[in-house]
């Protein structure tokens, strides 16, 4: 068998030996033996089956399709758990809602930075935003067309559609508050849905859009009470920031000022 040294000679002289060498040297094809199973095997099997049964009973939750939790599971709060995210004041929530309305409705024309584009007038520092709320509510409710002068520039080739059908009083109140705070720096008062409901009663029947001359006077304000969460202390604290930030555009979102020149260039 172990004839490594004369392997080549074998190959030269008796090729048939090498030809089937691998088939020749291998052992018989295997078959199954008949050893008995040991008791140990059955004991271990019984143990595994017991564990498996207990597992299924504990975890299957009665084979109920509606239950995603094992029976007896109680969702707990982990120790030291504090809900994630900042806690917003009522006013912040109001402004957030206004921002959401602005992003869906106003963004397309007036731009997110509030600077308008082409024949669409800006909102930033606009006298139409900073001054009376009555005429601002009129514009939002019924829309406006024709020439209008904003910050000394005349606009008018584009018209703004009425929003009274699309937005509820609450939404209009929120978005006006948001625009006045963000682009006008006015933080000491909000517009409530009661005010808008009143304005809708008075102006809601109008069919055509306004022209600039038809609007209410510059200083006419919507009348109504401020909500309870606009307490005097908050007014006092934020009065300062409004004085500082009144003409600097946006204090909440510094990115606006950074982006503004860029958007002018792309125009």
């Amino acid at each position: 068998m172990m004839s490594e040294n004369n392997e080549n000679r074998d190959y030269e002289h008796k090729p048939s030996v090498r030809e089937h060498a691998s088939a020749r040297r291998e052992k018989q094809d295997p078959e199954a033996g008949f050893e008995p199973l040991s008791l140990w095997f059955f004991s271990i099997c019984a143990f595994v089956l017991m564990i498996g049964g207990g597992y299924l009973g504990a975890k299957s939750a009665g084979f109920d399709f509606g239950s995603t939790q094992v029976s007896g599971y109680k969702a707990g709060t982990p120790p030291n758990f504090t809900p994630a995210g900042p806690v917003l004041s009522e006013r912040d929530k109001y402004l957030k809602s206004g921002e959401a309305v602005y992003k869906t409705v106003c963004n397309g024309c007036h731009q997110f930075n509030g600077r308008g584009q082409g024949q669409i007038p800006p909102l930033v520092d606009s006298e139409w935003v900073i001054n009376g709320t009555e005429r601002m509510a009129q514009i939002v409710l019924n829309g406006i067309r024709g020439p209008i002068t904003v910050n000394g520039t005349s606009y008018g080739a584009q018209e703004m559609p009425a929003q009274k059908g699309a937005l509820s009083d609450q939404r209009i109140a929120q978005v006006i508050t948001y625009v006045r705070e963000r682009f006008g720096g006015i933080t000491d008062a909000v517009v409530t849905k009661e005010m808008i409901a009143d304005a809708r009663n008075r102006h809601g029947d109008r069919v055509a859009q306004y022209t600039a001359g038809e609007l209410a006077a510059e200083d006419a304000m919507l009348s109504g009470e401020q909500p309870a969460w606009m307490n005097p202390e908050a007014d006092a604290a934020e009065g300062e920031t409004s004085a500082d930030g009144k003409n600097s555009g946006d204090v909440k979102d510094p990115a606006v000022n950074d982006k503004a020149p860029e958007s002018k260039e792309t125009k």
């Binding site: 498996g52 597992y55 299924l56 975890k59 939750a61 109920d64 399709f65 239950s67 995603t68």
Partner: peptide, 10 residues
């Protein structure tokens, strides 16, 4: 449903 992972687990 809780029984699906339970059946696979067993």
């Amino acid at each position: 449903p809780a029984w699906m992972p339970a059946v696979s687990g067993v």
